[in-house]
Amino acid sequence: MAKTSEDAKYHFKIWNGPNEVFDEDSPLHYVENYNDPRDFGELAGDYALAAQSVFDQYSKNQLTNYIAPLLHLIRQCLELDLKWLCSQVAHTEHQKHFEPEHTHNLKALWDESMPWIMQNIPLIARDVRLDATFRLVQAFHSIDPNGDLFRFGLSKVEAFSARKSADRVGFKKSLFPDFENAHYFCQHWALVVAWGYRGGGNEEEWQCSTPGGWNPLSFPRI
Rank of each mutant, 00 (worst) to 15 (best):
I124W: 00
A51E: 03
A50W: 02
A132I: 03
S87A: 05
N33C: 02
Q187K: 14
I14D: 06
T210Y: 07
L217Y: 09
E20Y: 08
D167I: 07
N202D: 15
A162F: 08
P27A: 03
E79S: 04
R163E: 09
T210E: 10
C186N: 11
E42N: 01
K156H: 12
L175Y: 13
Q52M: 12
F134W: 10
W84E: 05
K107N: 14
Q138A: 10
G147W: 10
L109G: 07
V89D: 00
V31Y: 02
L82A: 01
R151V: 12
P122V: 06
E99N: 06
S87R: 01
E99W: 04
G201H: 10
Y197P: 04
I117H: 11
F171Q: 05
G196T: 05
L28T: 03
N215R: 01
E6K: 09
H104N: 11
G147N: 07
A194D: 10
K173S: 12
E203V: 05
Q88C: 07
M1V: 06
I222T: 14
L82D: 01
R198F: 04
H72Y: 08
R75Y: 02
R221T: 04
L149Q: 07
E205N: 12
W110M: 12
F179P: 14
E205M: 11
E79P: 02
D46N: 11
Y66V: 05
